[in-house]
Design a protein around this nucleic acid. Sequence first.
DNA 1: CCATAGATTGACT
DNA 2: GTCAATCTATGGA
Length: 199
Amino acid sequence: MDLGPARRVGRDFFARPTLEVAADLVGCELRHRTAQGLESVELVEVEAYLGEGEDPASHAHRGRTPRNRNMFETPGRLYVYLSYGLHHCLNVVCESRGRAGAVLLRAARPIEGLERMASRRGRSGHELTNGPGKLAQALGADLEWDGRDLVRGSLGLWSPPQRPSVRRSGRIGISSAQGRRYRFFRADSPWVSRAKPSL
DNA sequence: CCATAGATTGACT
DNA sequence: GTCAATCTATGGA
């Protein structure tokens, strides 16, 4: 029996507990339809960040700020922030509206539009998308993407015909909240980020 | 107001 | 391995 083509993910997919969404995001394809043509990647590594008062490492831990407002917005939208004043990081908003929760997109396997990604990155091969800042730069994402909806429009998410095997670990670069294994990734993918996780 | 830490990356010793 | 790039949020004087 044919498994059929990947299909676009709807609002219900995102309106669930953040950890569940994170696990299911691995293997999904992020597609961007641009004037220049299609650009797409397969997500191979993500991290969950929970809501207000739930997760000390989350931007939403101490409540709303101008920066994190979209973490409390409609699920399926993007939360994009500037890291270290230099790099953009892409997050997918989860939970129900008004309740914070988001999944950081850390690494991906390029599928379509590699030439434009390489041109934005000034690099090639694994260095295209093996880190959150690198992935955002490869896709041409910046703060203009903050609040964009993945459910409608030229930017969307497609679930895979067959779900890959997903492994868990501690999040990368998080010293607090140890013991929380909120990083999800494909163990068999050479496209995961290089940094070492905290167990 | 000033200091500091941070969901990072790239260049360099 | 070290370090600087530079924005956001927080905490203390």
